[in-house]
Design a protein around this nucleic acid. Structure first.
Lengths: 249, 249
DNA sequence: CGACAACTTGAAGAACCTCAACCCTTGTGG
DNA sequence: CCACAAGGGTTGAGGTTCTTCAAGTTGTCG
């Protein structure tokens, strides 16, 4: 556990990726320290498990440290729609703090490490440090911004555009936390997961991936993405990163 | 202006529809009064106007009092995707308080009346009344919950299902604030707007509306919705209102 | 090696789009 | 008071995209 490493100002062994690349710089040393100390536990979750079911009261929120998780909703015919992908550094169900439950299922895609925060602790933090509270609020709104972009993606883009947009967004998000160099990154998903994200069938997803491969834009296999032409990928997906609220440089 | 009406505890001439039907009951008299006093101005906006453009810093947030507004994003081919519809009682760009800007355009559909709140005032409120701050946070997350449902709608439902879901959701939301009785409600939109919501063409929207009409489920014309069979409408749209966080009864 | 899951490909069909024409209502000016 | 223009709504015909179904192929792990 991190506590064994000893504490000093700004030591963020657990929460160091939170808001990284976004507005982390606006967090004071006091705030980072308070956040780090607010961690109740760090636990490991098995792959492909439902972790937080919808519409059930919860009293804890989590921060993803390692692995991939997703938010999803199932249709009456059993088809699954992913409504969010979560990468390290992302709050997972922080919105359950004001909402008291979540309106979707939250599950793991791979084995994951997460940090847990009791709502009672967050409540104290929010009351005592209003600015930190606002940064937590900000973090939950990043999800909403991505949701809006996903609506746009599904409503206005072709299958090729949707897949390109998803890879563009995911590449950018992983780059925020140092998990992509813009050319290659791990993304341990299956084609069926991609289909669940993009609102298309697995079969058609396969054909879209073939086109991206043949046009030397991107290859995806065995959980690894190799980007051939990031500019073109972004253009096909009509991707611009403004909605991710990147840090000014 | 409301101030002319005189003040007493719980007088909410302007903000009385905020969170109505959701968790408004959790607001104390002090909180309601503080919110009402935080109103900086009430203004009228013309129909079909861009009110808040994307990616520009803002220092004010608004609450919709009367009329219809929408959030939208435009694709490179000029096609518009609505990502949110706003009805009376809804905060419009409250998320711009933590975000400092919005990542989408916000405009009017009809002439509207809105109440304006300066971010500096919200900041004071949030610091002095943490519980009220959390209720504001909650309100912004209702948008996120609707976004998730819209993703599901676009990703997993047919054109008929999407239109049915939109009408189901809108009917429910208007009922929260007393603007629908479950059988008939005003919805001053055009078929093209519906198309922009559902990610389909206006022509196909027309055909879907014909089917709903012929099956006696719903008629829509001249800005008026007549619901023939609400249960069936909800079933076709796979609509359940849990994600709208209705008040327990 | 065999079993299983994930990926791949082909063929046929459904859902939705595009384009074009027409209708209906409303408002305006002669 | 009528003619006409304009915008929104309606319909048909044909084309495209994506789905469905079915049959392999490849890779992995006991």
């Amino acid at each position: 556990m991190a506590k064994a490493l000893g504490w000093g100002r700004g030591v963020t062994v657990i929460t160091g990726q939170f808001l990284l690349g976004r507005r982390r710089a606006e967090l004071s040393e006091d705030e980072k320290e308070a956040l780090e100390k607010a961690v109740d536990a760090v636990v490991t979750l098995p792959a492909r498990q439902l972790i937080v079911p919808r519409l059930k009261p919860v009293d804890t929120s989590m921060l993803l440290l390692e692995g991939l998780m997703c938010s999803y909703m199932d249709a009456s015919d059993g088809e699954r729609q992913l409504v969010g992908l979560h990468v390290p550094g992302d709050p997972l169900d922080l919105h359950s703090f004001p909402l008291k439950m979540i309106d979707h299922d939250l599950g793991t895609l791979t084995e994951c490490r997460v940090a847990q925060f009791k709502h009672s602790t967050i409540e104290r933090l929010d009351a005592e440090m209003p600015h930190l509270g606002r940064m937590l609020w900000f973090a939950t709104l990043l999800d909403a911004a991505m949701h809006r972009e996903w609506i746009f993606r599904l409503g206005r883009l072709s299958a090729l555009g949707r897949v390109a947009h998803f890879f563009s967004e995911t590449e950018r998000r992983l780059r925020f936390v140092g998990l992509s160099d813009g050319e290659r990154f791990d993304l341990p998903l299956q084609q069926a997961d991609l289909a669940s994200v993009c609102g298309i069938t697995p079969v058609h997803t396969n054909r879209v991936l073939r086109e991206l491969r043949e046009r030397r834009i991107l290859t995806f296999g065995r959980g690894v993405v190799q980007v051939g032409d990031l500019k073109l990928l972004n253009r096909i997906g009509e991707f611009e990163d403004g909605y991710l609220y990147p840090e000014k440089r």
